[in-house]
Simulated assay, not measured.
Amino acid sequence: MLPIRVTYNQTCELLSITRNTLRDLRLNDPTFPKGYKAGSTRQAPVYFDYKSLVEWHKKNEAKSE
């Protein structure tokens, strides 16, 4: 089964964060799921794996409690 691709904007909506916060997470949190590009150009969209995002969110939610 193929992973469910989530766009940059959809990821922001799912996590209720801004694009700047998502950028900071990608740069500063080594546990945050890696995004992957749909092409080789700079303008190619970045996607995230939905399952990885959900798992990351659950782990971080447990840490904050």
Rank of each mutant, 00 (worst) to 15 (best):
T18R: 04
T18D: 02
V46M: 09
I17H: 02
R26V: 11
D29W: 08
V6S: 09
L2D: 11
D24Q: 14
E61K: 14
N9C: 04
D49M: 01
L14G: 07
L2H: 09
Y8V: 01
E61Q: 15
E55S: 05
A44R: 10
L22F: 04
Y36G: 00
K37G: 00
L22K: 05
P3C: 05
S40N: 10
M1P: 04
S64I: 13
E61R: 14
Y8L: 10
L22Q: 06
E65N: 07
Y8K: 12
E61D: 15
Q43Y: 10
K59M: 12
S64P: 00
L53M: 03
H57V: 06
Q10M: 11
T11G: 06
N20P: 03
N60C: 14
V46G: 01
L15C: 14
K37W: 00
G39M: 02
R19P: 06
M1F: 08
K37F: 00
L27M: 13
K34W: 02
K59V: 14
H57K: 15
S16R: 15
A62M: 14
E55V: 05
Q43G: 04
T21H: 04
K34F: 04
P3R: 02
D29F: 06
K34A: 13
K58P: 04
E65F: 08
K63D: 11
S52Q: 06
K63G: 08
K37A: 05
A62Y: 12
R19K: 14
P30E: 10
Y50F: 14
R5S: 07
E13N: 09
R26Q: 13
Y50M: 08
G39Y: 03
L15K: 12
L14I: 12
A44I: 05
P45V: 03
N20R: 09
S52L: 04
E55P: 00
R5P: 03
L15P: 13
T41S: 15
E55M: 03
Y36H: 09
Y36I: 00
A62D: 15
A44N: 10
A44L: 09
I4V: 14
C12T: 11
R42V: 08
A38S: 07
Y50D: 01
S16I: 10
